[in-house]
Write a protein that binds this DNA or RNA. Structure first.
Length: 182
DNA sequence: AAATCCTTCAACCGCCAAGTC
DNA sequence: AGACTTGGCGGTTGAAGGATT
């Protein structure tokens, strides 16, 4: 289709945000709200791509973020929601006030997933590993040792993106639809 | 004390769906 | 109706810091 790039990459900064960039972004959003992310960088005097600004705001700068360690309740809720929704991190995040999809995704991959594997539970199916022959085979290669980074591609393939777990979502209260947010 | 390995998490990438013209 | 733009999502990467050897 020939999409235009989201920004002029040659003229944007990448990598970690500086304090000054954070301050500019926060000041701009406070003054103008979360408007058009595409035009925000130039309006705010930032050499960043709009996507990058949005991500930085949502995952780090938003004032209502909780941050800090996950409580036991949150931990259990994430597992429960994941068993219902799969890797729908934004939907899971919508039910955890003050948490972001990125934060939950990271927490899942670094903590919960390993914990479930340690308990002999398949983190994909949420069933005992011995029950799911295929999963066991995968987990054998995967193993607890691989619980860290570069995990196996999780299930819920592309096709599910379009389906989007509508039925599952209807079982739960709260925001609905693909763009349900906090 | 230095080197190496491991873990964490902020940030990026590519894709898709919705919205607009 | 369809081309195009934009926002948003999930997967992945890589730097930084901690743990281990």
């Amino acid at each position: 289709m020939g999409r235009s790039p989201c920004c002029e990459k040659a003229h944007t900064n990448k990598g970690a945000w500086t304090r000054e960039e954070d301050e500019r972004l926060v000041a701009h959003v406070r003054a103008h709200g979360e408007g058009c992310w595409r035009s925000l960088p130039s309006a705010a005097g930032l050499l960043r791509c709009g996507k990058s600004c949005r991500l930085r705001w949502i995952n780090y700068l938003r004032p209502d973020l909780k941050r800090g360690n996950f409580s036991r309740d949150e931990d259990e809720l994430i597992v429960k929601l994941h068993s219902l929704l799969g890797n729908k991190w934004s939907l899971i995040a919508a039910r955890l006030p003050g948490r972001t999809d990125n934060e939950i995704k990271n927490y899942w991959n670094t903590h919960i997933r390993r914990k479930l594997l340690g308990r002999g539970i398949d983190p994909v199916t949420h069933r005992p590993l011995t029950d799911a022959a295929t999963s066991v085979r995968q987990a054998g290669e995967d193993g607890a040792a691989a619980a860290g980074r570069h995990l196996l591609p999780l299930q819920h393939p592309q096709s599910e993106r379009s389906g989007d777990g509508v039925q599952l979502r209807q079982q739960l209260p709260g925001p609905q639809g693909r763009h349900a947010r906090l």
